[in-house]
Nucleic acid binder design. Sequence first.
RNA 1: GCCGCGUUGGUCAAGGGGUUAAGACGCCUCCCUUUCACGGAGGAAUCACGGGUUCGAAUCCCGUACGUGGUACCA
Length: 509
Amino acid sequence: MSKVRVRFAPSPTGGLHLGGVRTVLFNYLFAKKHDGDFIVRIEDTDQTRFVPGAEEYIFDCLKWCGLEPDESALHGGPHGPYRQSERKESYRHYAEQLVNDGYAYYAFDTPAELEKMRIDFKTTENPSPQYDGKVRMQMKNSLTLHANEVKKLLDEDTRHVVRIKIPPNETISFTDMIHHEVSFDSSLVDDKVLLKADGMPTYHLAVVVDDYLMKITHAFRGEEWLSSAPVHVLLWKYLFGLTNMPQWAHLPLIMGPGGKLSKRDGAKYGFPVFAMNWTDPKTNELTEGFKERGFLPEAFINLLAVLGWNDGTEQELYNLEELIEKFSIDRVHAAGAKFDYEKAKWFNHEWIKKLNVESLRIKVKDLLSAKDIIVDDDSFLDKVIELVKDRCTLLPDFVQHAGFFFKMPVKIDIDAVKQKWNEEKRLFFEEYIIKLENFQAGVSDWKMGEIERVFKSLAEEKNIKPGELLAPMRIMLVGGKYGPAVFQIAELIGKDETIKRIKNAMLQF
RNA sequence: GCCGCGUUGGUCAAGGGGUUAAGACGCCUCCCUUUCACGGAGGAAUCACGGGUUCGAAUCCCGUACGUGGUACCA
């Protein structure tokens, strides 16, 4: 029985964006679902495109998402190597085999000559002429030149490329797992470059050769590749046989609010487009990632999975195990989807509520300490997290909602109190402080119910509505109009701290 | 321009000949809450258009429009 083997080929040109992560995710889910191998092919050859640090970055992202490739496969597994640079020799071999078999040819045209062709053949009906069956016989290649001349040029090491010779008037069709039957008229496909002048393969050659050598059975990639699929199908036919070709799945594109989701200027959307922070080594420009924005990996994976896929039920929240169990390629949409950041935040909120305290503790602690809020008692932190997590959408929200339990608020929303502040209320709080000071030092006495009872009876005595006093009390303790019940906060931060905060705040009113 | 792929509320979507066309996000109203949330109950809002086929079309077919991708010695 042949085992399922899928591979993800990270594009080394920049950060790992939403579409990229979803492609990996679907690869991963499919592999795990069928108990197969999930491996990575690294395109590290092309000097002009490979960006230093990109490989490590991609693995960091995959690790964060919990989608790491199978180790054994990565490091010298049975069908390695997985680095394109380590296969350099074989691409030339296959390219030459194609030429010898008459399926490809050497082309000696210079960039200037190509440019000239594009101008000469340009018409209104055909604004961008291709190097194809209609023009190839008028170009400088091994089809038009005499054999001797070709040999001479080759011997002289003349710069040349290898191009595939697309046959005329054929219908090239294949079955895509998502789009089903897809077909192309070969006369409309151009003679794509297979081997570049520097000896490096283009994606077209590399992907076919690698998939064959790596024994890939199913290939998932973005829909932007659908147009070049006929070239790949032909290469499979010429090189390894159509029966060995992997099953294709061209995944729908993820779109931004105004159209296609661009990797660049993710800032204009107001939400991240990369999994993790990415610094462009050329420009040193930093693009914020979902991780740093405060997303949980569980939520990130979840929201991406249901963008273009659903299991037919009303379930929307899935963990990785459930996704593996429920995933089915048949239920992946053919249509592209617009990314909705509001819904993305909802997923994160749901996951924060769903996750237990242990999973949140370290993340919250790090966030707080980054704001100089020191947590020395983990069990106290746990209580606080449990208390406030329902009101946190993004992880950094914990700073606002949990910070005041550990540190007196630096900024107090004075304006919210000032207009309604008066001498009566001042008197109330002065007396309340005295009452609070009378609480026994023993912890058992300092309970929210008791603190509240004292508050209310004093308010009644002073003939002030408790509602009038609760708002200032809250602002004194937390700094703003948010957070859990006031007296619960008072209980948690303790007697001394409560009194200290009331005193401190009154000075400012 | 040509080629490919697509089109159910603002967004994600279920539904694949007969449904009052699910559900979720967002938005609005109300309840709960002497804050902010959570939670609960409601509400507004959809089958791109035109032709067929059929007793019957969101669903099948053909056009058109629109969107999107490709049209590189980028992936």
